[in-house]
């Protein structure tokens, strides 16, 4: 944590022209980084500088910059979303770095998340997992009154704990095996806590797990690294829940 208002940093940024390019690190140095800046604002400044020299800016994904859309995906100094726990890269501020630090920035790396350019990757595999079963089948207009089925506050809160996943993929990026279990488990666990969607519970877990396999993610070894980097702190109990749901689906 820096006490200074202005620091300078050296950046080692992964540059890759396209999916088939081998890629390489490039070094940049930035003087005069205000420590109240967010990490992405620091990259904005880098890109402004590059463009002022008519050079190619670094491509990175971002949108809300509030830690909720799940767009940003940077591996900062070896950790997805950077050194601050429970903080998406866009919510990381430069005050967590020191004057003269060298900061490495890499993209998510996984077969299922191919690099598009520089730090931008393709995460559509997550959409396909969701399409396989991450929903309650209810057609518009068919719903009973919202209070018709009471749900205990404990269950509702617990469902919410799992529902807050922002779909960023940091769990995959951090996992030594590139497993998507935390993401998939979070959805399965959320819906397992609610009476809605109970009729298709078994089908759901089976289909989502199958799709997860197909996408080329790795197995889960219970390293819990995913939970450690998850910006919203999804617990690996979601993975355990996915497994019990799966067993229930298997024996019925």
């Amino acid at each position: 944590m820096s006490n200074k208002d202005i620091i300078s940093v050296n950046l080692k940024v992964w540059r890759q022209d396209g999916p088939n390019d081998k890629g390489r690190f490039e070094d940049y140095s930035l003087k005069e980084v205000n420590t109240h800046m967010s990490f992405l604002e620091m990259l904005d400044v880098l890109n402004e500088n590059l463009m002022k020299e008519q050079k190619q800016p670094v491509e990175f994904d971002h949108d809300c910059r509030e830690g909720i859309c799940g767009s940003c995906n940077l591996v900062i100094n070896g950790i997805p979303h950077g050194p601050e726990a429970r903080t998406a890269a866009c919510q990381l501020h430069m005050r967590h770095f020191n004057d003269g630090d060298t900061i490495t920035i890499e993209p998510w790396r996984a077969t299922a998340f191919p690099v598009i350019k520089d730090l931008v990757v393709d995460r559509n595999a997550f959409d396909r997992i969701m399409a396989a079963g991450g929903y309650v089948t209810v057609a518009t207009g068919n719903a009973p009154d919202a209070n018709a089925i009471p749900i205990s506050k404990i269950d509702a809160d617990s469902a919410m704990d799992y529902a807050v996943c922002i779909g960023c993929g940091a769990c995959v990026a951090a996992c030594p095996n590139s497993s998507a279990s935390l993401f998939t488990g979070a959805k399965v666990a959320q819906l397992s806590k609610l009476p809605q969607g109970a009729p298709e519970r078994k089908q759901r877990v089976k289909a989502m797990v199958e799709q997860m396999d197909k996408e080329g993610f790795g197995d889960c070894s219970n390293f819990a690294e995913c939970e450690a980097v998850c910006p919203v702190g999804i617990s690996i109990t979601s993975i355990a829940t996915m497994r019990t749901e799966y067993v229930k689906a298997m024996f019925s």
């Binding site: 719903a143 009973p144 749900i151 509702a156 469902a159 919410m160 609610l194």
Partner: peptide
Amino acid sequence: NNIIDQCVAQGVPFAREYGGTL
């Protein structure tokens, strides 16, 4: 009102009271 019904049916975990109502 239909919106709330629809969303609850989809599994949106709205905040609830201890009695289980919204």
